[in-house]
Design a protein around this nucleic acid. Structure first.
Lengths: 178, 178, 178, 178
DNA sequence: AACTAAGCGAGACGGTACGTCAAGTCTTAGG
DNA sequence: CCTAAGACTTGACGTACCGTCTCGCTTAGTT
């Protein structure tokens, strides 16, 4: 059974990329809910219909940006050095190092995630939750990893600060002070 | 120095309450970003201007609903029975019991919180973070309490399920299996 | 040099006419300053933006109604029978015959004309000023024709009445009783 | 039968004048339909209610300004020198001399007059129509005087210019070239 | 080569909601 | 009872975007 291929122009990769790039840029600049499809279309030099043809919603578009790595450039994933506590702490530290200057990006990501479970999952992936915490595969229980990312998100949304010792205190909290 | 009181009609408590009530109802029903000021005004039998006069934004309005206890009816706050682990677990269980049927409310609350740190703080309060976790007052370090609420929020946004043993597993995770 | 024609849907003649028709109807019914763009849009079954896209103001819209002959159905223009005084008088009489029942239409037209010289010009044309009075073409000096229309307008605004012999008296006044 | 006089404060002449002055100033500055009652109240240092208590409408307020001579400072009224044509011409010339710089005032006056026959009458008075043209009293037929004022108004609204010889040409037109 | 059919940039369309302005009414507190 | 102040409901403003729908053109397969 062959994939049916009717005549007509192919999807333009050029447009696809221009749209994703524009979306990512505006997402970072203005946040999720000041995004406009019209603005993206204009910036990408593209008709609105081309966006609506391929993505069903704003969140779908942002989700694709996310999996393409256009919103969070670095993948957060600890090395396995043999010392689990150390691995966890350096993973946390990596996220904390990324945060300053990106708080509003985080806010927007949380908003988008709250709009759509799919995005929430992608975002968790991007932060390293599953590779680390998925029960069967990762070295830590999922609850632990969720607690850590959750704690960071919660405090960040509240505008709280992360002082020098925060990473180790947090890891202590979820692993218990041995 | 006296509080200046110029003549003119006083603020109508009647309108204020009608607005908050309508806002809370629509927030619960439709979620944060399908709220419309016009809709609230109409339902409250009030002019739009009366809303804009007293609240600067949708988030400010929702924040006030939150502190007035119109969105989350029950205050989540454990008793101190002497057994900290038990207290923590019953607090978690209280939140989990509230969740089913209120996922979309939670989503909307998270969105609003992500829009405005003030709301995030109020929401945390409402979930019991400060009374329990504020270092100076509460029995648990703030990190622990944030980790717990964060874990619940994160999983809920992803649409994950909370099975029977979740509460105790989560408490185990953050207190360490002693 | 060709008129640039970028792609995109063409202007909808259907909408254009519906708007003009609704505007004319409401103008006649309610007068210039109780017109609302929203009302016209609603009656025409059209979005407000479609009006704002093509007309910059209420007066521009009314001006177009005027030139399309949707406000003053009959064109006032005397035949040239060879007897100038008779021609003038029958022209005046035509206007006077139109007036009863249309005073408020006239008021509205005057208001609109006072808002915008363009409309004033179109209104004058419609009453027959230029075809008759344009120095180079018409048989009468512009001053004469303006004096006649002006006299009628002035008295009508004041609510004065036009008795049987008014037309001939007015023509007498401006041509002199020879 | 005595005029009933119940207790209570008397109408404040101070406020009345402040309101009329503010109204006149704003009328001249912004024109009839960009007047706001709120603006007048603010400028006059007066509550809105004080305006609504004593005047039923914007036009009523402007009408009173008109009869108080706060809009058209000079009264237009010819001397009787014995040469009627000369008198008429100097009257016209007086109006024409006043016009430059006051076109928008005229527009606004016409709009107000078109809103309310009462105002139209007051305006005519102010321009000198009745003292000159009232059949029984004045030296000229009312039609003549209306034709002259009408001609000026009509041309002015259209934005037409009044050249050097206009006054005499107009008088010629309505008196006949002798 | 001619003939579909889809993709595309552009942009007009019917709508919804925005946040603002002003209208006219009502409510205080002070003379 | 009058007044200044100002909060209230109402309704229209002009703007921004939505998601859908033509247009005229280009691109790619099918015949």
């Amino acid at each position: 059974m062959s994939t049916e291929r009717r005549p007509g122009a192919l999807r333009s990769e050029r447009s696809r990329l221009a749209i994703l790039t524009a979306a990512a840029r505006q997402f970072a600049e203005r946040g999720y809910d000041h995004l406009t499809i019209e603005g993206i279309a204009a910036e990408a030099g593209v008709g609105k219909q081309t966006i609506y043809r391929w993505w069903g919603s704003k969140t779908a578009l942002i989700a694709e940006c996310l999996v393409e790595g256009m919103l969070i450039p670095v993948p957060f994933r600890p090395e396995a050095t043999g010392d689990p506590r150390k691995d966890l702490e350096s993973w946390v530290q990596g996220i904390l190092d990324f945060l300053p200057g990106n708080e509003s990006l985080l806010r927007s990501l949380v908003i988008t995630a709250a709009e759509d479970p799919e995005v929430a999952t992608r975002l968790s992936e991007r932060l390293g939750v599953f590779p680390i915490g998925l029960d069967s595969e990762g070295p830590f229980p999922l609850e632990v990893v969720e607690a850590i990312t959750g704690a960071i998100v919660i405090r960040s949304l509240r505008g709280g600060d992360f002082d020098e010792g925060y990473a180790s205190r947090l890891v202590d909290a979820v692993l218990g002070t041995s």
